[in-house]
């Protein structure tokens, strides 16, 4: 780390005064305008990310503002009756927010224990060889397209859940259910939780582990009482990132969770129910033939703006946490 800093400052000195002295023979032979042009071209590439963000915000904000000109903000944010396309119109977004949270809850119930288990195993238990073999295998899951997870939920998980559903829990889930979509999303986010938390755990200095072992602690105790708390901020960051990913996931909920907003928001949390999530609504309404300027169009963008704000807030917290633990141990 230190060497790099030194070399950078050396570079800067060289760039400012190429000869290192007033020896005129070592000076550049021309003004080299090309270098400036290249600098600005590269800066333009980097600046494109700012343009993208701005474009996203503007594209969401304008139709949303028009939407709130027609529908009162309070009705939108606090209503629970969601019927934006069928008369009588009603725009209580809480019905589909509940759907999103419900899917997230069931996904996390699967993904957090499994993801953290994998992370602890890879970081604290696995030998070097096993880690080299198993880590890419788990990360392959992250490369599977979401449409494949959606189909997996519909064709495998739903029948599986219906088959093993214990009768005393009431009716078994139908074709579309939160449980099946949640489980598929859970499987999808396991590698994300596992790899970000594993990074955090491996960043914990070995001296802490050795100290605990010297006091006679078992490996399980070292993992749960020493490494886990020390890596907690990274683990929390991993989970928040996974939540944000789940909230924004479209194809799996569109395929497997159904399309029925529930006015009773508690009903959405029942795993056997069919629900509508925010992304599911956007995906089912925003197809190519959606007319610009129609109320449906504006509704889609208002829901998208809410989704964007929610994920942005979570990402900001998560990025901050990740950057912080990186600084602490390096």
């Amino acid at each position: 780390m230190k060497r790099r800093v030194q070399s950078k400052s050396a570079m800067r000195r060289l760039a400012a005064n190429p000869g290192g002295s007033d020896n005129s023979r070592l000076r550049a032979s021309g003004p080299r305008r090309g270098e400036r042009a290249i600098y600005w071209a590269l800066a333009g590439c980097a600046g494109l990310s700012i343009v993208t963000t701005t474009a996203i915000v503007i594209s969401l904000l304008i139709p949303s503002l028009q939407f709130f000109g027609e529908v009162p903000l309070g009705d939108f944010l606090f209503g629970t009756d969601w019927s934006p396309t069928i008369n009588p119109h009603s725009f209580g977004v809480l019905a589909i927010v509940a759907g999103t949270f419900s899917v997230t809850l069931w996904a996390l119930l699967f993904a957090v224990p499994v993801g953290l288990g994998v992370a602890i195993y890879l970081s604290e238990y696995a030998s070097r060889r096993r880690r080299r073999l198993l880590k890419p295998l788990v990360e392959l899951l992250a490369g599977v397209p979401t449409v494949a997870f959606g189909f997996f939920a519909l064709s495998f998980l739903t029948p599986l859940i219906q088959g093993i559903w214990p009768g005393f829990l009431g009716d078994e889930p139908g074709v579309f259910s939160v449980a099946s979509a949640g489980l598929a999303i859970g499987l999808m986010i396991v590698p994300m939780i596992a790899s970000v938390s594993e990074d955090a755990m491996r960043a914990v200095p070995n001296a802490l582990r050795e100290g605990a072992y010297a006091l006679g602690a078992t490996r399980a105790r070292v993992a749960t009482r020493v490494v886990f708390p020390a890596a907690l901020s990274g683990i929390v960051a991993a989970i928040i990132l996974a939540i944000s990913r789940t909230v924004g996931e479209t194809m799996i909920v569109l395929i497997a969770a159904g399309n029925t907003p529930n006015e009773n928001i508690f009903k959405s949390f029942n795993p056997v129910e069919s629900i509508q999530a925010m992304t599911g609504f956007i995906g089912s309404i925003a197809t190519g033939d959606l007319a610009t300027g129609s109320l449906e169009y504006k509704t889609v963008f208002a829901v998208a703006l809410l989704l964007f704000v929610m994920t942005l807030a979570m990402n900001a917290v998560s990025i901050r946490l990740v950057n912080r633990y990186r600084e602490v141990y390096e």
Binding site: T52, I56, L60, I282, A286, F301, L307, F308, T311, N315
Partner: peptide, 20 residues
């Protein structure tokens, strides 16, 4: 900004594409 963009839901990029 780039870190944040990496985590924006993909459907929102679709809406950006649709609108602009």
């Amino acid at each position: 900004n780039v870190q944040n963009l990496a985590a924006v839901p993909s459907i929102i990029y679709g809406l950006l594409g649709l609108a602009f």
